[in-house]
């Protein structure tokens, strides 16, 4: 279990352009952080940086657990549950195959109950090509659940979801924090978790 994520004076450059500079924050277990800002301010870049895809131009990220301090990007990635712009689904695979693939890839036992929790139990044998955008997003949420990762990085988590879906994700996020997880979400909408927010 991790206890906190700390960013120290992070800077991000894309080409010759500096997106942000001297960015510091700290999120502890059970907390959520909303990253806000205009399009192109670097919200997604910050998430990619935390996930370890993008190297910071300056500064560092420290992930603390009870036993150790992790500063290596690749190592940090092994704690990350990722929900990006794209859902990462293959049209040729059924909902269950898709979810089992992610579970086994992450070294977890396949767990059909995750489908029930996101309301996709009836669609289990349906190939993903027949899912609506909202259903695809729900399956991506189920993937997040089966990965059992403590640090959730969510890019626009409310996108493509209807009111019921937004309620579902709010409930899942609250549960994750309640279990001592950490959430960092790039969003235009309030997370409703009594969380802090970071303006880029």
């Amino acid at each position: 279990m991790i206890s906190s994520l700390t960013a120290e004076k992070l800077a991000c450059t894309r080409g010759d352009r500096r997106l942000f500079d001297g960015l510091s924050f700290r999120v502890s277990a059970g907390q959520a952080l909303a990253v806000e800002g205009a399009n192109g301010a670097g919200k997604t870049s910050l998430l990619r940086m935390i996930a370890g895809f993008l190297a910071p131009a300056a500064g560092r990220l420290v992930l603390k657990s009870a036993q150790a301090e992790i500063t290596d990007a690749e190592e940090r990635g092994k704690s990350v549950g990722w929900l990006g712009h794209h859902d990462g689904l293959k049209p040729q695979l059924t909902v269950r195959e898709q979810l089992d693939f992610f579970a086994r890839l992450y070294g977890r036992a396949p767990d059909a109950s995750a489908l029930e929790r996101v309301g996709l139990a009836r669609q289990a044998e349906l190939p993903c090509r027949y899912l609506s955008a909202g259903q695809r997003r729900r399956l991506a949420l189920a993937r997040l659940l089966v990965s059992e990762r403590p640090l959730w990085l969510l890019d626009e988590p409310f996108a493509a979801l209807d009111t019921a879906g937004q309620g579902l994700i709010a409930q899942l996020m609250a549960r994750h924090c309640g279990h001592g997880g950490i959430i960092i979400a790039a969003t235009h909408d309030p997370l409703g978790l009594g969380n802090e927010s970071l303006k880029l």
Binding site: G77, W82, G84, H86, D87, K90, F102, L105, Y106, R149
Partner: peptide, 17 residues
Amino acid sequence: QGDFEDGSLEVIALSPL
């Protein structure tokens, strides 16, 4: 390319593999 375009590659990259 397929995994890159639909976002699977990120999820795969974060796996223990």
